[in-house]
C-alpha cells in the first residue's frame, strides 16, 4: 500500500464518518481511495468544489458530532485556513491531512516540508493552535489516523497530519491495527435537533464585553494541557552523541540512515525526531542541550523547524541547518557529509 492509501484506510478503521476533498497532487490517492471505500462502508464521501467548501463540509459534519476529515496539499491547505480558524473558534473536532508539496505559490508537486510554519503557527486568523502530527513511514501514516481522531475528539480541535509527497507515494507493508482507543468524552454540544433538551448553538462570535477574551483563555488552558501531556518524540542514539540531528517526517528517515553511517565511522551521532510538531518537544531537546553538543536540523525547507530547535536549545549549544527547499530532498550522503564536517570542525576547535 502507498502511504496515502494506508492513511485513508486507517481513517476508515478509525471510524471516520465523512470525507470531503478536492483533488490535488500529491495526495490524489486519498481522495480516490475514499471515493470508493467510504460508500462501500455506508459512509459519506463528497468531492467538493474547492478546499474552502471541503473544510466547511467538515465543519458541518463535525458540528453534528460526526468524525470528519479532509485531505489536501499545500495550496489547498492555504485555502482551508479560514475554516480551520472557525473550527478553532467553534471548538469542533476535525482531522486535516496536508501532504506537502513545494511552494510558495503553485510551487511544484515535489515533496516538501515548507508548510511547517503554517501548520504549527496557525495559518488562519486569531489566537489558536492545531495539533500537528509528523509521520515518518507508511506505517506511521496509518498509525497517526486513530490518534488524530482521538485527539481531535478529546480536545475538540483540529488535528493536522503533516506528511509529504514521498510518504504519500511510497509503498511499504503496513499493519492496520487500530490502537487501543482513549476514553473519549461524550458530545453533548453536538447539533442533533433539540429532542428532549434545550437548544444547542455552535458558534465563534463572542460580542459581549470580555466574552472572547474568556474563550481565548479557555483555549489557552486547553493548549497548555496538550503541551503538558501529548508531546511525542523519538530519541535515537542520543545518549553519548556529540552531534544530534533533529528531523521529522521523511527527512528523519534520511537522517537516521546518515546517523547510522556516521556511527559506523566512529562519529557519535544521534537523532531526535519530533512526532508531534505542535506540541513541539521543547523539553526533550532542551534536556539534550544540557550536555554540550551540536544540533543539526535537517528539513526540506529553507529552515522552519530550526527556529523551534533554537528555542528549545536556548543558546546552550550551536544549532545548524541543512535545508533543501523547493522540492529538493537531502541525500544520506549529503547529511553524512554535513555531520562529518561539523564534527571535524568541532574536534579541531
Amino acid at each position: 500500500m502507498c502511504g496515502n492509501e494506508a492513511l485513508a484506510e486507517a481513517a476508515i478503521v478509525a471510524g471516520c464518518d465523512a470525507y470531503f476533498g478536492y483533488p490535488i497532487t500529491p495526495q490524489n490517492e486519498i481522495t480516490a481511495y475514499m471515493s470508493e471505500r467510504m460508500p462501500q462502508e455506508g459512509r459519506v464521501f463528497v468531492q467538493s468544489e474547492s478546499e474552502l467548501a471541503a473544510i466547511n463540509m467538515v465543519f458541518g459534519a463535525a458540528a453534528t458530532g460526526k468524525r470528519a476529515m479532509t485531505s489536501s496539499s499545500s495550496p489547498g491547505i492555504s485555502l482551508m485556513q479560514e475554516g480551520i480558524s472557525y473550527l478553532a473558534g467553534a471548538e469542533l473536532p476535525a482531522v486535516v491531512v496536508n501532504v506537502m508539496r513545494g511552494g510558495p505559490g503553485l510551487g511544484n508537486i515535489a515533496p516538501s516540508q515548507a508548510d511547517y510554519f503554517q501548520a504549527t503557527r496557525g495559518g488562519g486568523h486569531g489566537d489558536y493552535r492545531t495539533i500537528v502530527l509528523g509521520p515518518s513511514s507508511v506505517q506511521e501514516m496509518a498509525d497517526c489516523m486513530p490518534l488524530a481522531f482521538d485527539l481531535a475528539d478529546q480536545y475538540r480541535m483540529t488535528v493536522m497530519v503533516l506528511a509529504d509527497g514521498i510518504l504519500g507515494q511510497m509503498m511499504e507493508p503496513v499493519v492496520l491495527d487500530p490502537k487501543p482507543r482513549r476514553e473519549l468524552p461524550p458530545k453533548p454540544w453536538a447539533l442533533t435537533g433539540m429532542k428532549d433538551r434545550p437548544q444547542n448553538i455552535v458558534r465563534s462570535l463572542y460580542l459581549a464585553d470580555g466574552a472572547l477574551e474568556e474563550l481565548n483563555s479557555r483555549l489557552m488552558a486547553k493548549y497548555q494541557q496538550i503541551q503538558d501531556n501529548e508531546v511525542l518524540c523519538e530519541e535515537y542514539r542520543v545518549e553519548d552523541a556529540e552531534i544530534v540531528v533533529v528531523a521529522y517526517g521523511i527527512a528523519a528517515r534520511i537522517a537516521r540512515a546518515a546517523v547510522d553511517q556516521a556511527r559506523d565511522e566512529g562519529i557519535c551521532a544521534g537523532m531526535i525526531r519530533p512526532i508531534t510538531l505542535w506540541p513541539f518537544p521543547f523539553e526533550q531537546i532542551g534536556a539534550a542541550a544540557e550536555t554540550f553538543r551540536m544540533f543539526l536540523t535537517v528539513e526540506m525547507s529553507c529552515g522552519q523547524m530550526v527556529e523551534d530547535v533554537k528555542l528549545a536549545v536556548a543558546g546552550k549549544c550551536p544549532v545548524l541547518l541543512h535545508g533543501r527547499p523547493g522540492g529538493g530532498v537531502p541525500t544520506i550522503d549529503e547529511v553524512l557529509d554535513k555531520i562529518r564536517q561539523l564534527t571535524i570542525r568541532a574536534g579541531a576547535a
Binding site: 465523512a18 463528497v46 458541518g60 458540528a63 470528519a68 455552535v202
Partner: peptide
Amino acid sequence: DMVEVAHGRAPAVATGMKR
C-alpha cells in the same frame, strides 16, 4: 439547534450536515 458559520459558506456546511 443552530450553527454560525463563515461568511458565505453555509451551503457547504449544510452539505456536511445533511450528508
